[in-house]
Amino acid sequence: MAVYAMNIVLSLSIALGLLAWRTSNFSSFTYETDRRNAVEARPVQLSDWQLQSSNGKTVYLSELSDQLLLVDFVYTRCPTICRALGSRYEQLQRVINSSGNTQITLLSISIDPIYDTPQQLNSYRKRHNGLKDTWQLARPITDHAFQTIISETGLRVIPDKFGGFTHSDTIHLIENRKLTKIKPWSSTDWENIILSGKNS
């Protein structure tokens, strides 16, 4: 009987341990939270993404990444989240400019590269009163580049019924080509990072 009791306790601990491990100690129950927690625990080394900038030129992540990069993923036709993200970037850009911190760049990467030509990207930034200097826009031009971005960030992009996409409303922090933080756009952490110049 004592052995049995011990076996019960043992299997209970194994089951609970497994669940705790899988959910990062019962903190992440959904993929999106798990993605955030995982990056926070273990920053992800990114490959040198190849992108086409909104001025039509090819840029590489390494060229941008000597600074702190805040990256969001948008598509310009988006009627919902991307508008919020755009307004948020407008706000953050004002914070950057008034803080005088030149070490920070905002980057929006399109998840609809076929439609989002450089012109479309530029007009998206214009709609949100964005300035070129600290807000870059870009799209992946090869399928391979797009897949790399998706798999390295763990981003999920699902086509919806209306020809658009359902996607994450988060902003990603990249330091020295390392993805170190993923937080919702509404988080006030972003202001703190801009003002202190570092990831707290």
Partner: peptide, 28 residues
Amino acid sequence: RIDPLGAIAFICYTGWMLFWMLPLNLDL
């Protein structure tokens, strides 16, 4: 012999049920 009352089977069954009810695992 190891589980005369079915408690371990119960833990195993509920554990896996819970595991696959988590949206996280369905996504993964």
